Amino acid sequence: MPSILAVSGSPSPASRTVSAVDHALSWLADRGHRTAHLAVRDLPAAELLAGARDTVAVREAFDAVANADGVIVATPVYKAAYTGLLKAFLDLLPENALAGKVVLPLATGGTVGHLLAIDYALRPVLTALGADHVLPGRFLLDIDIARSEAEGVYLAPQTEKRLIETLERFDGALDLRGIGFSAARPQLDAEAGDLALANGSPAAVGR
């Protein structure tokens, strides 16, 4: 089964973004995928901000990205864009680090006014890193995500439904990856277009 890495860029230790990512990875793991979660906030800040690529922690993070078949890139939206913490990590990645991978952007925010941050802020960077197929992604409202020690992660029913629909598309794209993106492109484009419409996104298919 494909291996999936989630890269989350929230600076908060009590992050709704991380809660949503853990929920998504649990769903994918239940379907047999190998999953891992790289929280950028756990990398040494001095190394990250200094652009140090040759340290043990940063090299291990690069290896985790390189070895993944699918990558979930998750971030809260601050000031209409993804976090500076995530940007610092993406800036360090080698050229074409996402080539050959299926990439799913996932964002959380306090208002639907931040919805377009996926397409206008995050997607161009993922494309610049060589991603062959970037799904339209999913935006989740903070108010729809909760976490407790007793019950774990809770998503509002409609949010849960939309996230699972997105993960099913991600899962399907990972399966198509095995036959090659060129051969699978018509189906990938059709599915991405359907998801963009469902998500209320103006994303151009295949960007």
Rank of each mutant, 00 (worst) to 15 (best):
P2V: 07
S3M: 00
I4H: 04
I4R: 06
I4E: 01
L5I: 08
L5V: 05
A6K: 07
S8Y: 10
S12C: 10
S12E: 11
P13E: 14
A14Y: 14
R16E: 05
T17M: 11
A20R: 03
V21R: 08
H23N: 12
S26A: 15
R31P: 11
R34V: 12
A36E: 15
A39W: 01
L43R: 07
G51I: 11
A52D: 15
R53T: 14
V58W: 04
V58S: 03
A61N: 03
A61C: 11
F62W: 06
N67K: 04
N67C: 01
D69I: 12
G70Y: 14
V71S: 07
V71P: 12
I72W: 00
A74F: 01
A74L: 03
T75P: 06
T75M: 00
P76D: 05
V77Y: 00
Y78C: 02
Y82N: 05
Y82V: 01
T83S: 06
T83A: 00
F89V: 04
L90W: 07
L92V: 09
L92I: 12
L92H: 06
L92D: 08
L93E: 00
L98I: 07
A99N: 04
G100H: 02
K101L: 02
V102F: 06
V103Y: 06
V103S: 01
L104M: 09
A107G: 04
A107S: 14
T108N: 07
G109H: 09
T111F: 14
T111M: 08
G113P: 04
G113H: 13
L115D: 08
A117M: 10
R123I: 12
P124Q: 05
V125H: 02
V125L: 11
T127M: 11
T127N: 10
G130V: 02
D132C: 03
V134Y: 08
P136H: 14
P136C: 13
R138P: 03
R138E: 11
L140Q: 01
D142W: 05
I143K: 13
E149P: 09
A150S: 14
A150K: 14
E151G: 09
G152Y: 09
K161W: 03
K161H: 15
R162K: 12
L163H: 10
L163K: 10
E165M: 13
E165H: 14
L167S: 03
E168M: 13
F170S: 01
F170I: 06
D171R: 13
D171E: 15
D171H: 15
G172F: 07
A173E: 03
L174T: 05
L174I: 01
A184W: 00
R185V: 05
R185S: 14
L188F: 03
A190P: 01
L195P: 02
S201F: 13
S201K: 11
S201W: 06
S201E: 05
V205G: 02
G206V: 08
